[in-house]
Design a binder for these strands. Sequence first.
DNA 1: ACTTCGTCCTGTCCGC
DNA 2: TGCGGACAGGACGAAG
Length: 283
Amino acid sequence: MPELPEVENIKRTLFRDLSLPQKVDSIVFLRKDLRFPIPIKSLKNLKGKILIDINRRGKYLLFQFTKEILLSHLGMSGYWRVEHNHFRDKKLLKHDHVIISFNSSLQLIYNDPRRFGFIDFIPQSDSINLNPFIAKLGMEPLDEFMDENYLNKLGKLSHKNIKTFIMDQHNLVGIGNIYASEILFESGVHPSAIASQLSISDWERITRETKKILHKAIKLGGSTIKDYKKSDGTSGSFQNFFKVYNRANQNCDSCGNKICHSIIQSRSTYWCEHCQPIKHLKM
DNA sequence: ACTTCGTCCTGTCCGC
DNA sequence: TGCGGACAGGACGAAG
């Protein structure tokens, strides 16, 4: 489900509502695997430990304890919520999988209908970059060092189409299927253009629009489609600003032509043929 | 080594 | 109204 703006908003909402630090009273697993087996034995060690911060790396949430880190990827449909466990009969929701209870009586609960999400345990914070999920991640798009030179250098080595390239977490982190289409529309680059054939000016526009769109989406609370909600139950509103995503056959806001749709790399892709001309397409 | 494709899972929506 | 099929925000790993 969530891409960078959604994960960032979940992070901020949890941070706000948990009033850290919080000491773990118990951690309960209602099933033993999500997408991958949950390292339950290791995670049980968090009992008695202090949650001191919540961070984000790409689409990963990092629950920072004094020494350890609980790493969480939300997949397509995962989210964490905070409950006030003042009443013992508080009932769980369908698809709740992990419940972390704190001494304060607050609870942090993971829910994930499709179970494409996963959880990992990092015993020592300073070895986070050795974690297999984190190790090979590309640059944060909002990092000041993420610029057209970084993308151009990587892009020159890739024969992938540009949409697949910017969604590849080894290049850039946090961009998923929705924002990829939106970014390429604003950049005026056709999603099928081959990465190695883009000009430095293409990369410059992609850099600028990526930062702009992600900043705006974060500010608007992300995009709410179907079931995604922020962790406090409120909705994001960036979906109201989609220029192409989910708008097949509707008119382009800029030129009036019909928005195109096709499947690229088995993912739905939207673009405007007029605003994103095929000048770099490999024939 | 690179790229593409199938796969994991449930819920929802659309057409018949 | 019920049912089947398509599709959904992700990313790993096998196969080419």
